[in-house]
């Protein structure tokens, strides 16, 4: 029997995971900041049930530091660390840092060195910066120093107070060009600018993209439209197969149905395995560590 592929969801938001929802005011702040108005608290057993049903081995869980422009964190690096400690065999934790914080470098170095987090999440639209801004240089250099990837929000953001102009895929080219040793991911495939995302991925092999896009229709229909009509039907399978990662953007989008939709697409089986987990392992610098 063929071995089940190792599946990583590279893009999830744990804002409503019960162990970090002790304070109701924090939960309400998260609902408002994320624009997820009806989400209730989720016991971890429910998260595990969803993962097990879908066959997902790991979730990459993302925080969001909005200290300077919104006065708080949606989920803090310490809360991410807490969740990873509860379930190290299910969760991979990323750090977030508001690049405008005076102590941004210290915060990030602490997250990598002391909290043991596995990468950096940045949200240009919500945190209001352009990715190639010089202010980001020290953070990118720290990521290179510690061999950690950066997952950027890219394209339209559904969050309130988050303008798309900061996150257009073309804004990331300069980062890819200036830091070829830095692995970066354009979240949501940079939708709606998916051709621009594909073009940058084609030229720069340090650029990845995730599949966290479900803005119209159901997952099967939308993935079909984006990946088989807006992009050439063979573009991913032939040319970008080592750079696309399964990411759901859960709980905004439907993790299980998105995964099923990907599994139903006309990719080579080996391409699908890369998208579901192989590429994420390389992006995370964890190749060969599926069981670790």
């Amino acid at each position: 029997m063929r071995k089940k592929p190792f599946v990583i969801d590279i893009h999830t938001h744990p804002a409503f995971f019960e162990p970090i929802c002790e304070n109701e005011a924090d939960v309400e702040f998260r609902r408002k900041m994320l624009g997820l108005y009806k989400n209730g608290k989720a016991p971890l057993k429910h998260i595990y049930n969803q993962m097990d049903y879908a066959g997902i081995d790991r979730l990459v869980i993302l925080p969001e530091d909005l200290t300077t422009n919104h006065g708080g964190t949606v989920v803090s690096n310490e809360e991410i660390k807490k969740l990873v400690e509860i379930s190290p065999d299910r969760f991979i934790g990323f750090a977030s840092v508001d690049p405008r914080r005076k102590d941004a470098e210290e915060v990030l170095e602490y997250a990598f060195m002391d909290l043991g987090l596995s990468g950096l999440k940045l949200h240009p639209s919500k945190q209001e910066f352009y990715p190639a801004d010089k202010m980001l240089e020290p953070l990118y250099k720290l990521c290179i120093k510690y061999n950690k990837p950066v997952l950027f929000h890219a394209g339209l953001s559904w969050e309130p107070d988050a303008l798309s102009k900061y996150s257009k895929p073309e804004n990331f080219e300069e980062v890819a060009y200036n830091y070829p040793e830095l692995r970066i991911c354009l979240g949501h495939f940079g939708w709606p600018w998916v051709k621009e995302t594909a073009a940058i991925m084609l030229k720069y092999t340090n650029v990845y993209a995730d599949t966290g896009l479900l803005y119209f229709d159901n997952a099967r229909e939308f993935f079909g439209h984006v990946f088989e009509k807006e992009l050439g039907i063979s573009w991913i399978d032939r040319s970008l197969r080592h750079q696309v990662m399964f990411g759901s953007n859960n709980p905004r989008f439907e993790q299980i149905r998105m995964l099923e939709a990907l599994q139903g697409m006309e990719f080579r089986e080996s391409t699908l395995e890369l998208i579901l987990g192989g590429n994420a392992l390389r992006f995370l610098g964890m190749e060969g560590k599926e069981n670790g």
């Binding site: 108005y37 989400n39 803005y215 229709d217 159901n218 229909e221 439907e254």
Partner: peptide, 19 residues
Amino acid sequence: EDIPYCHARMLHTYGSTAG
């Protein structure tokens, strides 16, 4: 499951997809 239902779209009141 595989017919084109209308309840497959972003819902502003939820901030998430109906599926």
